[in-house]
Design a protein around this nucleic acid. Structure first.
Length: 382
DNA sequence: TCTGGGGTCCTAGGACCC
DNA sequence: TCTGGGGTCCTAGGACCC
């Protein structure tokens, strides 16, 4: 999808069409999606909202509405599934479709691509771009070339000609750090990378990453389109404070709030996890993390919270200027795959049941139906 | 008032086991 | 007195993507 969040917003606010618009967080936030009109002013995704406002004061800024984007995404993926069952979801607004085998039924890939674009425009009112190529890497890069609202095909014989003139940062998977390193080696175009010995790249970037870089530069990509929904490997949540703080009581309350968010999502998804990671970001943007692995997987708010507090203590912070905290639970498993093993000295019924009851009440009466006393007091005093 | 929040994957060292 | 090779698990950090 092109400027997906903005496109969804424009459906319900058509009067904003043709104007600079961006979606993003107002307070200490960043731009998530910018209309092409806003991009003309230099506004782009990832940039701070402050900067975006300065670049284009007349732009309309919209707070994100993830439920709406998810609903639109479901609609788009429903369209994909009518084309082929071989759909690999990359994100809310991006997918790979394996068109091997659709030719007899639906015609040439270009025709299929245009069909998809027409269906998405008609049924969802959203523009999208299609890249067609023999491999995922080239298809992804073709779709970038196709934007906005276009289609671009790279035939097998055209891969090198398409790839080599482009600059290294256009490679999918090459970000700022790798770009800078490549530049220091004197490599600027993909052709430069291709004509560098693989062993040189491997020395600079490691055996694996270096080898992959060289293969990318020659368009070699053996990855298949994998239709199965990838199961989540971790569940996490983080929050940037309204302003930096050194109040550890406040931080602990935020950790509890974050633990509630993470574990209630885990219970909803019916997963449990063993490793709890606490991430801290300081006022100077330095970011550190500590993790610990529990003896058994859990989805209990109190266990995750207790682990987070232990990790916080392990940092031995003195008057920290904290900007953000985050909790992530890794190594998650389907709850049905796990034999629950209550600790020997713990009562069979306890927090687990209380949390399930709270989840049920929240599902029925809304997010404020039940909450921790600590958080309630906190909310009341602020 | 510079710099979010959801993730994945890789590397590297140390502990520990056989 | 010297000291292998293979493997897993845990922890910390970093790059990258949308």
């Amino acid at each position: 999808m092109d400027a997906f969040y903005v496109a969804v917003e424009l459906r319900r606010r058509p009067e904003l069409r043709g104007r600079p618009v961006w979606v993003g967080g107002a307070n200490r936030g960043v731009v998530l999606s910018a209309s092409y009109e806003a991009r003309a002013f230099g506004v782009e995704g990832g940039m701070s909202s402050t900067r975006a406002r300065r670049l284009c004061p007349d732009a309309v800024a919209i707070n994100p509405d993830y439920d709406a984007y998810e609903a639109a995404s479901d609609g788009v993926f429903a369209i994909f599934s009518t084309i082929t069952p071989h759909v690999e979801r990359v994100s809310l607004d991006e997918a790979f479709l394996d068109l091997t085998g659709t030719r007899r039924l639906l015609g040439e890939p270009e025709e299929v691509g245009e069909l998809i674009r027409a269906l998405v425009a008609d049924e969802q009112g959203i523009p999208c771009s299609v890249g067609i190529a023999p491999t995922k890497l080239i298809a992804k890069m073709s779709s970038n070339r196709a934007k906005p609202n276009g289609l671009f095909r790279v035939h097998p014989g055209e891969v090198i000609g398409f790839l080599h003139p482009q600059t290294v940062e256009k490679i999918w998977g090459v970000g700022p750090a790798t770009t800078e390193k490549l530049h220091k080696l004197g490599l600027h175009t993909i052709a430069d990378v291709a004509h560098t010995p693989k062993s040189t790249l491997q020395r600079a970037f490691g055996a694996r990453a270096g080898g992959e870089l060289w293969e990318c530069a020659w368009g070699i990509d053996g990855r298949r389109v994998v239709a199965t929904e990838p199961t989540d490997r971790s569940v996490g949540s983080q929050e940037t404070f309204g302003k930096d703080t050194d109040d550890l009581d406040f931080v602990r309350a935020e950790l509890l709030r974050t633990s509630v968010r993470v574990t209630s999502r885990m219970r909803l998804a019916r997963v449990v996890g063993r490793t709890v990671t606490l991430t801290l970001r300081f006022a100077d943007f330095r970011t550190v993390q500590k993790s610990l692995t529990l003896p058994y997987p859990t989805d209990a708010t109190d266990e995750v919270y207790a682990a987070a507090v232990r990790l916080l203590r392990a940092f031995r912070l003195e008057r920290p200027r904290l900007r953000r905290v985050g909790i992530r639970v890794e190594h998650v498993l389907d709850v049905d795959q796990v034999a629950t093993q209550p600790a020997l000295d713990e009562p069979e019924r306890g927090w687990r049941e209380a949390e399930r009851a709270a989840d049920a009440a929240i599902a029925r009466f809304g997010p404020h139906a039940v909450s921790r006393a600590t958080l309630t007091r906190r909310a009341g005093s602020v």
